[in-house]
Amino acid sequence: MNKNSHSEKDKDSQAQDQDGKKETVVILKEEFDRLTAEAQKAKEYWDRLLRQQADFDNTRKRLDKEKQDFVKFANEELIFELLTVLDDLERTVELAQEKHEDLSAFLKGVEMILAHLYDLLKKFGVKPIDAQGKIFDPHFHEALMQVENKDLPEHTVVEELQKGYLLNDRVIRTTKAKVSKKTVDDFPSTNADGDMEKEA
């Protein structure tokens, strides 16, 4: 009942919009019923859309919060393991403060802690990037300096200024490298690395 009058009104206002005055359209009952059903369906879909949009927004908010919590506490396992390293270091420092003559024993202790830390990081998927002597690769290395070296192939990593690391095969820190070059003169007119053919 209600929906019938509703769709009637819709039709009327439509007719008004087009002509600016009221107009009566005669349609078959069959057609009228069909349109009424369609209008009802459209309303249903609209409601469903609104509800789903609200659902989606809520889910997204919930996921965002879960993600934040995850980020906050995902490190727990790693931190827990790191605490043992902290303990060891504290003990070492305490011992060294008490008696500071036995340097070799102290060094041995620190080396053991370091080895432990390496193992621990390895367990968590951390791998050092082996850059020394390799050809410079911008996906793993970052060039900070250049030194002339005629014997090495162009752009060889001569020295690691800071070690790089991979976490589960993704670079988390690039190797900061000193890179070799063949020629002393790096002025644009010289064809230093073959990239300037046109200008040379």
């Binding site: 970052e142 752009h155 230093a192 690395d193 990239d195 300037m196």
Partner: peptide, 22 residues
């Protein structure tokens, strides 16, 4: 790069100091 590859973003920045011309 010399072998016709394109680098974009971070990798391109990392090699900028030694290959400024390209």
């Amino acid at each position: 790069t010399k072998d016709g590859q394109k680098l974009v973003g971070e990798p391109a920045r990392r090699q900028a100091s030694i290959k400024a011309q390209s």
